[in-house]
Design a protein around this nucleic acid. Sequence first.
DNA 1: CTGCAACATGGAAGATTATCTATAACTTGG
DNA 2: CCAAGTTATAGATAATCTTCCATGTTGCAG
Lengths: 319, 319
Amino acid sequence: MNIRHLTFRLLQVYVAVVRAGSVSEAARRLHLTQPTVSQQLRRLAETVGEPLLESRQGRLVPTEAGGELYRASREVLGRFDDVEGYLASLRGGERGRCSIALVNTAQYVLPRLLGPYSQAFPEVDVTLHIGNRRQVLTRFERQDDDLYVFSHPPSLAHARAGRFLRNPLVVVAPQGHPLAGRERVAMSELLGERFLLREPGSATRMLFESWLQEQGLSLGPTLQMASNEAIRVGVASKMGLAVLSEHVLPPEHPDIAILPVTGLPIESHWQFIVRRDRRLPHAALGLLRFAEGHLGECVEARFLCNELAGLLAGLGSDP
Amino acid sequence: MNIRHLTFRLLQVYVAVVRAGSVSEAARRLHLTQPTVSQQLRRLAETVGEPLLESRQGRLVPTEAGGELYRASREVLGRFDDVEGYLASLRGGERGRCSIALVNTAQYVLPRLLGPYSQAFPEVDVTLHIGNRRQVLTRFERQDDDLYVFSHPPSLAHARAGRFLRNPLVVVAPQGHPLAGRERVAMSELLGERFLLREPGSATRMLFESWLQEQGLSLGPTLQMASNEAIRVGVASKMGLAVLSEHVLPPEHPDIAILPVTGLPIESHWQFIVRRDRRLPHAALGLLRFAEGHLGECVEARFLCNELAGLLAGLGSDP
DNA sequence: CTGCAACATGGAAGATTATCTATAACTTGG
DNA sequence: CCAAGTTATAGATAATCTTCCATGTTGCAG
């Protein structure tokens, strides 16, 4: 039997005939003419190399070979019905994979969104890749992931962006710092202090440095530390001052004071970035939709900045 | 996804590509050109309505949808491999159904053949229908069965026949009957005795009556009994004489004597009959082949008359 | 025996498929 | 950045599949 030219259609017709017990009846049910069905049947029997049906008192019943083919056909067609269901759930975003690359700082807040999302879509397999801005950019260039979270998007020629969260950067000092009680502090007053900074690839550092440059200021002594955690603990231990995202601070932070520096907080926003040239998996789209609808329930109101509707509209229209 | 134009061939190609992780490599393995495979792939993806593969550092790996399709394809192709195996065993006669209609008398001896056959081919489902000649003829007319066993075949226009067993009919008398010791007995000497006869549809009775007619003789008092068993017991109990197939007598029969009537035994033969107009199932053909090869081991040599080779040759050539 | 319903066959048109060659576009490792 | 290898696209052709209509054949019921 040469399986090559076997069509699922042929199996559908065959199954219909076996069920109907009659070629004509099957033809009616399939909205085909009787000769069409007869011929398909013959072709199938030729492919199999055995008679499939025989007439038993006016009813067509499968032969031994026909019975086996019928069983196999039912299983096979059923299996492909399953595939259709699976695809439907993929398309609905209820299932699938979604890979997200995050800048370091965003890891403090994104779980608030992903927790409820995973609850709602347990069949979606979300993978997070966390790195500093430079590392995430590399992943973006290599098209490693479906979604990216940046403060400042890379060139928008290849990507679409949608803001979803405010990310205010503030100057923090150890509790009890002489300037901590002041109503207003000028940045210039702080330049003599030691600043704890993230490594050069970091977005927080980049933002802070370009802000300083705009102001025409430059820092005195600095100390480089590779993680926000380390910096926060360092500040609490009076190693120096730092600029951090507010999200890095725990809700209660008795060891650390935010200094009311004029011109701060530096306002930036996290955005979801998607590449224009890569088809977004349904699951990733589903995640964005979920974020658009449920962000308000997941994060504090003061950080909220939901502009995802625009991104979604753009994705819906031309992918 | 429109399943209608989905070919098994397409799935084979797809599976090969996923396994190879490369279109070109799959093309080489399939002895196709690379563009052919590319195009099939595109068609498949169109049918499914989702991208199936994506390039991950130079290797093509299935997407979520592609993975599901791959699993389904493997299952489906595997299932049809099973069908092929099943068909092969059908064709080899190792499996299947075989329905046989027997005349009554043959039931004493056919099991000797069917026992070893069923042992050798346990997957073949043999059905026996036992009746007198008339009943079996009716089944033959209606084409109810694959094989028929008759002493005298119906018109050979619609059937082929092959003898396989002698069926000698003898006159039996109770042990101690006055003629039981004689060297020779003439039928005419027995006409005054009461004869126990089978019912009119029976082959044994037909044969006996036509033999009597040839001799210009006719019976005296008769008694009709519907089974060979009943007649045998009747004779043993001195109810009268009878004509029976030798096969009906047990190997040892101390109560019954065979009378050496001149002109007897009436020689007849059992034959396998197959209709010309009905395709013989492989299993039935296998049974005939088995009979042809093993009959000698199954029945006593004196009954042997294996002319099945001719029948098989006829079947092999044009069915 | 006759007629109807069911099945098979033949012929034909249009769509789809399978496959090729040639060529362009892209990826990737050096 | 280039060269090699991989993938995609285009165009072509023969085979096949799908489906129809018209017309035989056959088997069962009256």
